[in-house]
Design a protein around this nucleic acid. Structure first.
Lengths: 170, 170
DNA sequence: CCCGCCATGTAACACGTTACATGATTTT
DNA sequence: AAAATCATGTAACGTGTTACATGGCGGG
């Protein structure tokens, strides 16, 4: 269900063809990863089958025909329902960012709550990581480095969340 | 092939049962993600079938029998071959950390080279992200936040890599 | 007495990748 | 003339999840 809703979310901004979506996703590759064409097209097919998107074929002389998809009312409702349901804890960074990118469909309050939930999760990770890092089986160099990385990453994310929450507050 | 080699790598430290592996992985969950039992056991079965691990059943009265797996010579060679082959660029953070945790099987020089490669990749992401963030279609709040996060994360990882590389140098 | 931990396993399913097929047009 | 870009699609495969089945032990 991961990319399904994200693609649906992209279509709230403007109607797009599969190729466009793939290209856009490609440029977001580093943040959320980019599915292949073999994934994008079938996803659009099932969204269409489920009535969440419409398609209009743009017959072009000179260039291949494009199938331009737009979100339907049912699609907007389905997206909203998905966004409204609370995120279960332990979500991955990629999922966190995917939802964050759809923040345009969220209320200000919803966005702040989302970031605050993330903040408390990341904060909770710190002591856990430290505890695991100190356990006797993790003295190998690689493990030590990985834990060290984890702590640094958690600290950086926490700092970003604090900065961002402050910026968003009135 | 992702967890296959990581599990093999875990067995270089000590022989373990599937349950042990899962428990260990669980504690590394935040760093590299943890596969379910339905993935761990079949993985061990195929490693066994391929001759990369051995199994010895520990019949215990009182407790369920445990199947303790140990790495074979062929397994060690396969792992080494996998570690020796250069990492293709664009690897995900999770894969980066998985390999990092196996650093015990790497030479000092190999480890440093690995980190340096990562450093140059992360450094290259910065200008790309900045360029994409400035493009006209990314003015929506969510996108801006996600890009901002990406830049902060990249900066933090870069700083960590520099610190670590310095610490590892003579 | 029920719940949680220990311990293994299988089958159905979900999601995504790789590799292929097709074919025109623009750039090198 | 070759290669990249535009544009869509399918089929086989890989890897992992969820949900189930089985069964004993220990603590609240």
């Amino acid at each position: 269900m991961s990319f399904r809703y994200f693609i649906l979310g992209l279509l709230t901004q403007r109607p797009m063809a599969g190729y466009d979506i793939k290209r856009l996703l490609q440029r977001l590759d580093w943040l959320i990863g980019s599915p292949s064409f073999g994934s994008v097209y079938p996803t659009l097919h099932t969204l269409l089958k489920d009535g969440l998107v419409d398609v209009s074929v743009a017959h072009n002389e000179e260039r291949p025909s494009r199938k331009v998809y737009s979100i339907t009312l049912a699609g907007q409702q389905a997206l909203q329902a998905w966004l409204d349901q609370p995120v279960e804890p332990g979500i991955s960074l990629k999922e966190f960012l995917m939802r964050l990118m759809l923040a345009g469909n969220l209320s200000h309050h919803g966005l702040v709550a989302y970031l605050q939930q993330r903040r408390s999760e990341v904060a909770a990770r710190r002591p856990k990581l430290e505890k695991v890092a100190r356990s006797e089986e993790n003295t190998a160099l690689g493990r030590q480095l990985a834990f060290d990385y984890g702590l640094a990453a958690a600290a950086a994310e926490l700092a970003w969340l604090d900065r961002t929450l402050e910026r968003l507050s009135p």
